[in-house]
């Protein structure tokens, strides 16, 4: 894109409604691997409507790159709709399960941190706690950062799922 002004890379969340089949899912992933686009996270799940699925993709790129990604997604025959939620008011959530060591400071301090992030304790052993946290990516990142010094032994994140807010007016309830 030499003749265009390069805009800054930013994070984009794309919500893609597709016919539910693995060939389509592979085609979508293939766009990212084959054409060299960034892919931060991807979730795939059946939709309420039978035979449909929603894929939520978070990617990085400037406006031109994301526009190309959008067009390539549209070119996949079984893609019905692509919504770029980045500039829309959207509800975005991700879930993480974090196992953290209680050896250094004991359970209460870790549980206080969990409380601050509205995380749930879902497993307790002699020297570890497993916490479940949901929220937007920033919140999950923040909790992980706070817990790091205590020793995170294992972790699993879902990646983002997102939907457009029905009300697009100027209210922030995030």
């Amino acid at each position: 894109m030499s003749t265009t002004t390069i805009t800054k890379d930013s994070r984009h969340t794309l919500s893609v409604l597709v016919k539910h089949n693995l060939n389509t899912f592979s085609r979508i992933i293939g766009i990212f691997s084959g054409k060299g686009f960034e892919l931060e996270s991807v979730t795939f799940a059946s939709e309420a409507e039978r035979g449909m699925a929603r894929i939520t993709i978070t990617t990085y790129g400037n406006e031109e790159t994301v526009e190309q990604i959008n067009k390539h997604l549209h070119n996949v025959i079984d893609v019905l709709k692509v919504t770029d939620l980045t500039h829309k008011k959207c509800i975005e959530r991700e879930l993480a399960i974090v196992k953290v060591s209680t050896a250094k400071v004991g359970r209460p301090e870790i549980m206080l941190i969990a409380q601050a992030f509205k995380a749930k304790v879902i497993d307790i052993t002699a020297d570890k706690l497993a916490l479940e946290v949901t929220g937007n990516t920033d919140k999950v990142d923040a909790m992980i950062e706070v817990l790091k010094p205590y020793g995170i032994t294992e972790m699993s994140r879902t990646g983002s799922v997102a939907l457009k807010r029905e009300f697009q007016g100027a209210v922030n309830i995030n």
Partner: peptide, 11 residues
């Protein structure tokens, strides 16, 4: 006819 051809190499 293919929107992904437009703006791919040249703006």
């Amino acid at each position: 006819i293919d929107p992904s051809c437009i703006g791919k190499n040249v703006a």
